[in-house]
Every structure is written in structure tokens, then in C-alpha cells.
Amino acid sequence: MRHDQSNEWNRCACCPEPRQPVGLDPVRRLSALETADELRAALACMGIAGDVHEGRGLALVSVWTGLVVWTDGFWYRWWTGRRSQTGRWLYAHHSAFEPERAARRLAARYAELREAPSDMAAGAS
């Protein structure tokens, strides 16, 4: 039997009850604070300390001078230390669903900043 879709969301015209979405398991979205805490914990496992701050739907993980990661619960973002040809800061981003992989990338940036002179780490030109 072929099911014809009606205009109602998730309803088949020939079925009285709504159908369950196929292959979609409900996933609880983590808040920005929860994803920031996951990243902080992943960094701590690597011996890198970080402070978490939260407000207005965003959370920040302060790692080092020039290395602050912010998240909205979906993505982690941080400054790469580079600028575009027009002088704009270039940012890296990583899925917030992979805090351990993001922490490994951040550990590399952290090492760069620890070796760099402090004025360059802060983004001075």
C-alpha cells in the first residue's frame, strides 16, 4: 500500500494517526554551557587548564592569552592566529559533538601560543 502525504506535518492521508519519523532517533541537544564543560574536561585530560563562562546562549572556554573558544552548543570556534589578506581575523571551527577531537586541535594551537612572544599571541600587528 502506498501512503500519500497530506499537507499536515508527518501525517499520511490514509492513516488516522501521525507516523513516527523513520530513522530519526531523538537526540537531546546539549546547551552551550554543557558543550563548553565537555571541551574543558577534554582539555584537562591533556593537561591544559581552561575556565568556562556562560551567558546569553553562548559559552566561552578561556585557555590562554589569545586562545578563547566559544560555543553555541553546535560548534566550537577560536582564532587561528592568522589574518586574511584584507586583515580580518581567521577563525577555526569544529563540531561540538566531538570535544576530544576539538581538544586535540586546540592543544596544537595552545603549544604555538606558549612558544610565541606574548605580543604576537595577543594578536598585535
Rank of each mutant, 00 (worst) to 15 (best):
Met1Asn: 14
Met1Glu: 15
His3Asp: 14
Asn7Val: 01
Trp9Leu: 04
Arg11Ile: 01
Arg11Trp: 00
Cys15Thr: 05
Cys15Trp: 02
Pro16Gln: 08
Glu17Thr: 06
Pro18His: 06
Gln20Ala: 15
Pro21Met: 02
Leu24Asn: 00
Pro26Ala: 09
Glu38Asn: 12
Leu39Gln: 01
Leu39Trp: 00
Ala41His: 06
Ala42Val: 04
Ala44Thr: 05
Met46Lys: 15
Gly50Arg: 00
Val52His: 03
His53Thr: 03
His53Ser: 03
Gly55His: 00
Gly57Asp: 14
Leu60Cys: 06
Val61Cys: 03
Ser62Met: 04
Ser62Glu: 01
Val63Cys: 03
Thr65Ile: 12
Leu67His: 07
Val69Cys: 09
Trp70Ile: 04
Trp70Ala: 09
Trp70Leu: 09
Thr71Val: 03
Trp79Ile: 11
Gly81Thr: 02
Gly81Arg: 04
Ser84Met: 13
Gln85Lys: 14
Trp89Thr: 11
Trp89Ile: 10
Ala92Ile: 13
His93Leu: 13
His94Tyr: 07
Ala96Lys: 00
Phe97Ser: 06
Pro99Ser: 04
Pro99Gly: 02
Ala102Asn: 08
Ala102Leu: 05
Ala102Met: 07
Arg104Leu: 13
Arg105Cys: 15
Leu106Pro: 05
Ala107Glu: 12
Tyr110Leu: 11
Ala111Tyr: 11
Arg114Lys: 15
Glu115Asp: 15
Ser118Pro: 13
Met120Ile: 07
Ala122Pro: 01
Ala122Asp: 11
Gly123Trp: 07
